[in-house]
Amino acid sequence: MIRFENVTKVYARGARPALDAVDLEVERGEFVFLVGASGSGKSTFLRLVLREERPTAGKVFVAGRDLSTLSTWKVPHLRRQIGAVFQDFRLLPNKTVFENVAFALQVIGKPRHHIMTTVPDTLELVGLGGKEKRRPHELSGGEQQRVAIARAFVNRPSILLCDEPTGNLDPTTSVGIMRLLDRINRTGTTVVMATHDDEIVDQMRKRVIELDNGQLVRDQSRGVYGSTR
């Protein structure tokens, strides 16, 4: 589903690479933790998958497409197959929960009847049934993150990228979010989650990829957060 072939990313000429000759493959339906200290290259990895950045060297394949040859005007189509969730939720404060989720479908031109059926289903899935009319500031952090996940998942992407989704949440709430991500993973969606949360990684026992200074230092199935904390 995601394949990195010897990928190097250098932001500024002469600077230390953010990613250094990374080779890895994530299969369809996998759940992968991406761990490592700040600045280890986790976010760069996610940005490369979303094609917000292009690699300096090497090739990135996502959902069968070679991103180095993907023309700019096809990038939106790539992104429709990828959901993204962030630490800071990125919800629209002046829209309701329903509108926030519907927004993701409206802007890619989905018809109204499709939105009217899909959005309530997705809100039900993330456990926000009955809160459609609330605004983000009326919700708890965990609920806001559920809205963000609903928005990322409402178009049923084949890949869900999560950039420290539990970074702003307390442990109990985080567990709830992880259960939700696990459930989404079970529907066949590939989930890649960058995180600092060792407890979660240790509990889930999923594949762990560790980056250190841009280099892939560990790729372990059913792994733990590790000692190089």
């Binding site: 979303l50 005007w73 990038v75 939106p76 189509h77 790539l78 992104r79 429709r80 197959q81 990828i82 959901g83 993204a84 990125r90 629209l92 927004f103 993701a104 802007v107 890619i108 928005r151 990322a152 178009n155």
Partner: peptide
């Protein structure tokens, strides 16, 4: 957000 969810330019 539009760019993220794949809205066209």
């Amino acid at each position: 957000i539009m760019r993220l969810v794949g809205a066209s330019n």
